[in-house]
Amino acid sequence: MINSDIELIGLSKNYGANKIVRDIDLDIPQGEFVSILGPSGCGKTTTLNMIAGFTAPTSGQIRVRGHDQAGVPPERRKIGLVFQNYALFPHMTVGENVAFGLKMQRKGRAEIDNQVEKSLRSVHLDHLKDRYPKELSGGQQQRTALARAIAPKPSLLLLDEPLSNLDLKLREAMRIELKEVQQELGITFVYVTHDQEEAMAMSDRVVVMHEGIIAQVGSPRAESYQSASYPAAAK
């Protein structure tokens, strides 16, 4: 029985002599909120890019629900992605942004409208459907990006430090919201961050990366991080 949503097997990425990701192995079970934690340059964003399909691994395998992703372009991976800078389409309204994935799936007008409504409601933005991204606050943009990513019903969502542009109070509020959405939808979240507190607060499991390798994997509830075997993780 395939329980793992994502499997990284011996995954490496080199840029010339530079080894960004070094032979990592990771199993992420279905429906979990997993954080990849590490300082900048540790390879976490590159790993995310490889899962999404924007970067091809130098060696190793990525399996999503048992299917090898080699040669599958990003548009066919059925994965959601939220960028750090949200990357909302500025020339489209909030509604059109959220509808985009469904439009690409060639869904009917009625179904698209319905799904957009639902996604916006789940992030409490349904009243802003006809606004343009320029007119939204940082938090609203972030939630629009989330709604856009989940509207096409992916089975997996990747988030690349989505809250780092927000101020502290908003960040804390968003953490709760994100966790709620994840639990409601029941899909796997892979969350990249450099903020340990954030990782601990939201995740079912934390994967610590450092200089291209996985230093530690554990559950914040289960083990105690005070006795961290890795100094960087303790910061």
């Binding site: 924007f54 990003p74 059925k78 959601g80 992605l81 985009f100 994935g101 690409m104």
Partner: peptide, 27 residues
């Protein structure tokens, strides 16, 4: 044009042609 916009479109299921048509050209 922010390259992340193109990546977002791609991950939402847009082929390269769709990315150019819906995102790059309008912007």
């Amino acid at each position: 044009v922010d390259p992340n916009l193109e990546k977002s479109a791609q991950i939402l299921g847009a082929s390269r042609a769709s990315v150019i048509r819906h995102i790059v050209v309008p912007l």
